[in-house]
Amino acid sequence: MRIGTVGNGGMAAALGRHWVRAGHELMIGGRELSRAAATAERIGARSGSLREATAYGEVVLLAVPAEVVLETLVELEFAPGTVLIDCTNALDQRDHSLAEAAMAEAISSAVPHAHVVKAFNLAADTVWRDAPHRFEGRPLGVPLCGDDRAALERVAGLVRDLGCEPVPAGGLARARLLEATAALAIGTWVRGGDVRALFPPLSAA
């Protein structure tokens, strides 16, 4: 599968490394070509501009800060049917609340001919870089929200490439719940809480 990244930072490198190892063809895209090339060299990918990476990928990872996502998308062209993975979280860093709601839906409205899938937003790049993880003998679950079944299946395969387990979480309208969950989790972690202790398994009910 050909994968492009819009962005050349931590998330693009962390996820991209696993996808390259799994045999996918990856292009790291960036505004600064030297930075994109440096990231690509570290993980065994190719590099290009944001436009080149967008045109290259059947699947495109949107990995730029949430505050510049929409203005970045205006500059790019996506082929109809492109699978666009949104891993962003629009957080107010002062109190770790949501600065904007429904990022995935806003992205879908900006690029209506692409199939947006919300994924990978519940953990930092360091978690994905060090994947796979197992907790109590089970792989890390990755919730996915999207409206196109084929797009969800493609992203589910990319989740498995990390040694993680895709978790169907509903349509794209439910992505705002994932974004709110990320805000809750990050705020809890910052304050020293254990987020996993908040969600007991069904067997404990």
Rank of each mutant, 00 (worst) to 15 (best):
V20P: 06
R42T: 15
L202G: 05
L84Y: 05
L172V: 06
K118V: 01
A12L: 09
L158P: 01
L178H: 01
V167H: 05
L15S: 03
L61F: 01
G171M: 09
V142F: 00
A13W: 05
T72F: 08
A197N: 09
N89C: 04
A40L: 11
G137M: 11
H113D: 15
E25G: 08
G193K: 07
A123D: 11
G192L: 10
A102N: 14
S47F: 07
L202S: 08
N121V: 00
A90S: 14
D147Y: 06
T188E: 12
E41A: 15
S97D: 10
G23W: 10
V74T: 15
H96Q: 14
V159R: 00
L98H: 07
F120L: 04
S34C: 00
A45N: 03
T54W: 01
A119C: 02
A45F: 04
V83R: 01
G137Q: 11
L202E: 09
A22W: 06
H96C: 12
A110P: 02
G81E: 03
R149S: 15
V117A: 01
A205M: 12
A169E: 02
H96V: 09
V68K: 08
H24W: 08
T126R: 13
E100G: 05
E153D: 15
I43C: 03
A156Q: 08
P65K: 05
H115Y: 10
L15I: 12
C87Q: 07
R160V: 14
L177Y: 13
T181S: 14
L140F: 13
S34R: 12
R2Y: 09
A102V: 05
A131D: 03
G10I: 02
I186G: 03
P143N: 04
N121Y: 00
A175N: 01
G81M: 02
A53I: 02
G57C: 00
A124Y: 13
S34P: 00
H115M: 08
D125G: 09
L122S: 04
S47E: 02
A110F: 03
E153S: 13
L184E: 08
E52H: 05
G157F: 09
